[in-house]
Design a protein around this nucleic acid. Structure first.
Lengths: 150, 150
DNA sequence: TTATTTCTGGCAGCATGTTGTCATTTATCG
DNA sequence: CGATAAATGACAACATGCTGCCAGAAATAA
């Protein structure tokens, strides 16, 4: 009996993992489509979002920690975005070498336009989904993240 | 009132999306760690899994459709795996150009070793998670996939 | 059957992510 | 304070993914 429970949970979970891979790809595609008109890609609005949500200011490794990525990957993205005038490296009083990454005026404009597209999208997608299911799913996802993030 | 509901669902959903990105990265890392000892990467065991689960045999574009990726991405992976002796291109009676991708004997061995690691992992991870939550989450994930996969 | 459309393989270019390494700065510990 | 450990930037190598393009095969429509 225990084995049966284990077995079905195992299959269920592996199915979930594969489905998450699939959904991840589709969400990236959605994000790219949405941010296309403002010259962004999913990797870039992830960075913009992380900065916009932080109050105290973030360094490159800080953004990487928030997004769960390598600092090198984030560094490459921010370097390009600084060149494009979206971001700005601001002297960090707390650290001589590691600058704070901030949104320029243009970057803030981009973020606002992004939200104008993203918000209706989020509302429309969740239209027919009970809030309880979203909560259950988010709780489970966070639980899994905790398990793996060490 | 409607706006409040929309607002909290919107925030909840965006939070979920970011968490899914995070979890995706962690699952890939888990997969890479697990399959490291048999010389696989996550991209490769996804392909092996797709082939192993198919009864009728799959072509490269067929694997791509199952995994929700571009056929070019899959083609590059399978080309390498054929070179490594894990996969084999078998003449397709139904299509002159598009070969069926099959596991070699070595490939089947690899798949079996993979399952020996993956199964206990799945059981251990879901140990303290109610099966109902897994089902709810999988249902929601599939629902989202349907929305975006067109 | 013939014309049109779709599918496929192969190639190229590019975006994104990872790990590894090295030198330097910052933080921590004895 | 001084030694050691951790964090950071910069660079390189590599794995994966995408789109675009072309020519030929296969499926479909007329």
């Amino acid at each position: 009996m225990v084995d049966i429970v284990h077995s079905s949970k195992r299959v269920l979970f592996l199915d979930l993992v594969l489905s998450l891979f699939r959904l991840n790809g589709l969400l990236i595609a959605e994000g790219d489509t949405m941010s296309d008109r403002m010259g962004l890609t999913h990797a870039r609005w992830k960075v913009i979002g992380a900065i916009a949500l932080s109050s105290a200011g973030l360094t490159v490794p800080g953004i990487a920690r928030v997004l769960g990525q390598s600092r090198q990957a984030v560094q490459r993205i921010t370097d390009v975005m600084v060149k494009d005038g979206i971001l700005h490296y601001q002297l960090n009083p707390k650290h001589k070498r590691s600058a704070l990454v901030t949104l320029t005026a243009q970057g803030k404009d981009v973020y606002n336009v992004l939200r104008e597209v993203q918000d209706p999208w989020a509302i429309q997608v969740t239209e027919d989904i009970p809030i309880e299911e979203l909560e259950t799913t988010l709780r489970l996802v966070r639980r899994l993240i905790k398990k793996f993030d060490k």
